[in-house]
Design a binder for these strands. Sequence first.
DNA 1: ACAAAAGTGTTCTTGATACACCCATGG
DNA 2: CCATGGGTGTATCAAGAACACTTTTGT
Lengths: 238, 238
Amino acid sequence: MEYDKHAYEPFAVTVDLAVLTLRAGALHVLLVERGQEPYAGSWALPGGFLQPDESAETAARRELAEETGLSDVSGLHLEQLRTYSEPDRDPRMRVVSVAFAALLPDAPEVHGGSDAARARWTPYDEAGALAFDHDRILADARERVGAKLEYTCLATAFCPPEFTLGELQQVYEAVWGTGLDRPNFRRKVLATPGFVEPVPGASRLTGGRGKPAALYRPGAATALHPPLLRPTPEGHSA
Amino acid sequence: MEYDKHAYEPFAVTVDLAVLTLRAGALHVLLVERGQEPYAGSWALPGGFLQPDESAETAARRELAEETGLSDVSGLHLEQLRTYSEPDRDPRMRVVSVAFAALLPDAPEVHGGSDAARARWTPYDEAGALAFDHDRILADARERVGAKLEYTCLATAFCPPEFTLGELQQVYEAVWGTGLDRPNFRRKVLATPGFVEPVPGASRLTGGRGKPAALYRPGAATALHPPLLRPTPEGHSA
DNA sequence: ACAAAAGTGTTCTTGATACACCCATGG
DNA sequence: CCATGGGTGTATCAAGAACACTTTTGT
């Protein structure tokens, strides 16, 4: 290892964020419209450069606060996905990008981030062709989050502080794109100690009609044993 | 996003490799001895700088070939772990490192890599304190590989082209650090279509004594449904 | 009364676990 | 003939899947 600071072409290091949330039971992602070339007018994932004194995680959280306008992003779940480093991924120079997924419970309207670019929540399925390799980053984000729902308690990161089991189930269904059996889902969640804990007296009407649902809070557990497997994606089966 | 090449302090981008293999039934990792400060005399994971025209994956494979001396590393499994970017992880300058795990079937002796540094295979448990944040990278590598053994066919990446079920089981036991019931392991593997496929007539003696074991090749499947869960790590249970 | 959503119960089937047991080979 | 490792069979138990049914609310 040699350490001459200028022996190599400098690399720019950025973070890109797939900010995910649920709106009306559907998975949405935060996109910003690009003002300059390349890809001017295209939609892209929010992101930006690492400052000299911050880690990728710190930069990601800073960008998240800037883009969403939220005052407190400290409790939100940030998940490092992977790093994209193909030499030609940005036509202007070498940009190595560390990608993150961020999970938001409620979805504040965000039109116009801090840097005056247009921003909007877009249904995942309508994200279409994004700038750079952001399509792939977004697909990787969904796959990673979908996989982590299976064996962690991550789903509560999409929910407000108090939520119903129906809302929790909607998280799974939206991210996985499948339907789940409500009684079985309910039993599975309640049978996992520390996944959720009941809020004693509380209940809430969900669809205007129907029985009010009991409210729950996230529990102390982080892992799910045994996991909650999604209905066999394809023909794998033992 | 602004793109002035010199608006920011340049970052060095490196790759670090946790090269894992099985020797005599135990998990080993490839370490190199550092010649210069900082951490001169300490052991570290092999790695190096990204060249201007290569991706992190390409750089990782190049480093892997250089450090192991293997002529063909194209078939080996490389797994991107995550990127380590704490500002103070290298005392000299900002070094952002993309970490990989590499899985080797046979373990060629490697004393002396290409850059004249001493290199050696070390049992995972004896790796002790490594330079920089390499302890953490190595721990992350083992955890990631252990997790992927549960729900993918990755275990065959540790095996030679033809292997016995006993050898495959040793992979699981070495990475997980647990014992497994042989009859049940066997059934589970054979019941998963495409995990392994038998080599018709072949068999091999393993321990000098005992019945010769049938040989298998890796199959076409990559995923395991349902997964092969490790014996409950801690008190999670439904 | 009816629709809609929450919540409970029950049955069936699958897969995991824990063994006991037989087979082939070398010393 | 015994130790060693490969391979088979089987009983038991826990978990998941499917689905019928009851409860509580708004209209």
